[in-house]
Design a protein around this nucleic acid. Structure first.
Lengths: 93, 93
DNA sequence: ACTATATGCAAGTATCCACTTGCATATCAA
DNA sequence: TTGATATGCAAGTGGATACTTGCATATAGT
């Protein structure tokens, strides 16, 4: 629901980075990559809860595939930010 | 310092909205407007602390003018967000 | 100098949030 | 079915954070 709160945590931002690099990863793949490549030390449930927040914010879509769950990046909600506070065309008096 | 954490609070986002509407307001003006126009019930110190967070994040610049302090919106740090996770040109398989 | 205005500092509180632990459920392979 | 893999649920805990209260500082006007 809250895109802004979803971005407030660094681990969640790294997850978005990781899905940007390779989309459609499972929870286990994300866990493994965060640990090894990004130096994040956290339990699987911790990452699962972060993914729940990202999904509730509409930044990640999921799809069950057998006993795995694929995670896809859906960054459209982020467009609201640049729409709300444009970074161009604001003269500084 | 942390742009993402600065955006995590709704009151801070309303402050950014208010400075977008009218730039260069003092703390007292921001307080008055938040209370009346945005229905925010919070103490002056609360708003002041929020402004400190926004300034630390580089989203607001200040300028002392006599016994008042003017607040200006500097939204450039927000550009990092759309740069980090582009919302266009990402095909969904 | 004195008063009022505008802001700053600091400590205390209460809520929220990230994280863990333990157990449960579901799918695949033998 | 049995065992292994992949994920889900729920309660508890520590630390962060939004907010308040009280006092202090600085500028402007008289």
């Amino acid at each position: 629901m809250d895109v802004y709160r979803a971005l407030a945590d660094e681990t969640r931002r790294v997850i978005l980075d990781e899905l940007t690099a390779r989309d459609g990863q499972t929870l286990f793949e994300i866990c493994a990559t965060l640990m090894s490549r990004h130096g994040v030390t956290i339990s699987r449930q911790g990452i699962s809860q972060h993914l729940d927040v990202l999904e509730a914010a509409g930044l990640v879509a999921t799809e069950r595939r057998g006993r795995t769950k694929l995670h896809f990046l859906t960054p459209e909600p982020l467009a609201e930010i640049s729409r709300r506070w444009p970074t161009t065309g604001r003269p500084r008096p």
